[in-house]
Simulated assay, not measured.
Amino acid sequence: MKNICAPFDLAGLGGRLKAVRELHRYSQASAGAALGVTRLTQSKYERGDTFPTLAYLNAAAAMGFDVMYILTGTGAGERTDEKKPGT
């Protein structure tokens, strides 16, 4: 059986989280508020000082953030809450 799970790439998680947040046009403060954390915690996640909780990642997925990309670096890293052209 083929393993379809991509390994987590924790070294780049913060940068990808920041890129996806900016793609969605959120400030650190507004993203943090929407995801249930403070601006300081959001900043710590993006710097790689600490890692997001499962509750945070679940909320991010519900907002359309590409959580697979954030965790693994695999995926489009694009907004998932909008229809793609031609669909």
Rank of each mutant, 00 (worst) to 15 (best):
T74F: 06
R79G: 08
N3W: 12
N3E: 15
G32L: 03
I4V: 13
N58F: 09
A61P: 11
S27P: 07
A59G: 09
F8H: 15
Y45K: 01
K83A: 06
R21P: 09
M63N: 04
T74Y: 06
T50A: 02
F8G: 11
G14V: 02
V20M: 07
A19N: 06
Q28M: 09
E22R: 14
A59D: 08
A29Y: 08
K44I: 00
N58T: 10
T41A: 03
A31H: 00
A55F: 07
A59P: 07
A19V: 01
H24A: 04
T72Y: 03
R16G: 00
L35A: 02
A33R: 11
G12V: 02
G36T: 13
C5F: 12
A31K: 00
R21N: 01
E78N: 12
F65I: 01
L40A: 13
A76D: 13
A60S: 14
V37H: 01
S43G: 07
M1Q: 12
D66L: 02
I70W: 08
A19Y: 07
T50K: 06
G64P: 01
A6P: 11
Y26W: 04
D66I: 04
G48S: 06
T87P: 15
T80G: 04
S30I: 02
A60M: 13
G75A: 10
Y69D: 07
T87S: 15
K2V: 08
G12Y: 09
M1N: 13
T72R: 01
L57K: 13
G86D: 12
G86A: 11
